[in-house]
């Protein structure tokens, strides 16, 4: 995994032109780190990821990836640039087999048959359960297995930046633990990961840097250590999110 730095500066996003959902949001995610975004419902966490991926267009601000401005690229162009997105909603193609889902994940390099084979073999090595179920229809698998498939499909392109939106929502605790371990592992291998999670405890545990959003604005930011040692930050999370971050 070769991650690159992704940064958002002064990003504002509005629905229908006038309902502003993000207001001058700034964020920086570094390679080899998990950047966590936490905040209450309606804070704009998922909107940040959709904006980074290009599913929503910006009103102001710039998004750069490895120093390159990608603000005006469309979603599929950002995928070609190496951004992968695992949305909160189920996104595995239920009517396709595990193998065909992974094959679709190879869309950005669909003409390179050798690379496709290499990439899918690599995924099967990392996710033996998917290899076992490669002919199974995605729709017939459990929620946890489908989530792994979605993550695997996002990884098949060897992305530079991985966006994970609530990857453990509605997933059994044991599988959730595996997903967090995988997330950490990917970052340790050099990937740039931006994680949105309602589970503050887990998000804070695996994130190197945290951003707190409130009503579409940056509320606070810092490293995990900052949140554990800075009295003000620590208190904010403890009171506001009912969780105390420790180093």
């Amino acid at each position: 995994m070769h991650g690159v730095e992704l940064s958002m500066e002064n990003i504002s996003v509005a629905y229908n032109g006038d309902i502003t959902v993000l207001k001058e949001v700034a964020l920086r995610a570094k390679p080899g780190e998990v950047t966590g975004i936490i905040g209450p419902n309606g804070a704009g966490k998922s909107t940040v990821l959709k904006t980074i991926f290009g599913l929503l267009s910006t009103k102001t601000g710039t998004i750069t990836m490895g120093g390159r401005d990608i603000t005006n690229l469309k979603a599929f162009q950002r995928a070609l640039e190496g951004v992968s997105f695992v949305p909160q909603n189920r996104s595995a193609f239920a009517g396709l087999s595990v193998y065909d889902n992974l094959l679709l994940g190879c869309w950005p390099f669909r003409k390179d048959k050798a690379r496709i084979e290499r990439a899918i073999d690599g995924i099967f090595e990392r996710f033996p359960i998917l290899k076992e179920k490669r002919s199974t229809l995605a729709g017939s698998m459990s929620g946890g297995q489908q989530r792994f498939l979605e993550i695997a499909r996002a990884l098949v392109t060897e992305p530079k930046v991985i966006l994970l939106d609530e990857p453990t929502a509605m997933i059994a605790p044991k599988i959730s633990k595996d997903i967090y371990a995988l997330t950490r592992d990917l970052a340790d291998q050099g990937a740039t990961i931006i994680l949105v999670d309602q589970n503050v405890r887990q998000c804070a545990t695996i994130s190197d840097r945290l951003y707190i959003l409130e009503l579409g604005r940056n509320k606070a930011e810092g490293t995990r250590e900052d949140f554990a040692t800075d009295g003000q930050l620590k208190e904010m999370v403890a009171e506001w999110m009912n969780y105390k971050i420790d180093v």
């Binding site: 991926f53 979603a75 995928a79 949305p87 996104s91 193609f93 239920a94 094959l103 679709l104 950005p108």
Partner: peptide, 25 residues
């Protein structure tokens, strides 16, 4: 063709198709 695969993906879930890098439009 691959185009058919992309079309079926878009028909089933256009956002998911976009997520895998298909040029939906």
């Amino acid at each position: 063709s691959r185009l058919g695969t992309a079309l079926r993906a878009i028909r089933d879930d256009s956002e998911a198709a976009e997520v895998v890098g298909v040029n939906v439009v």
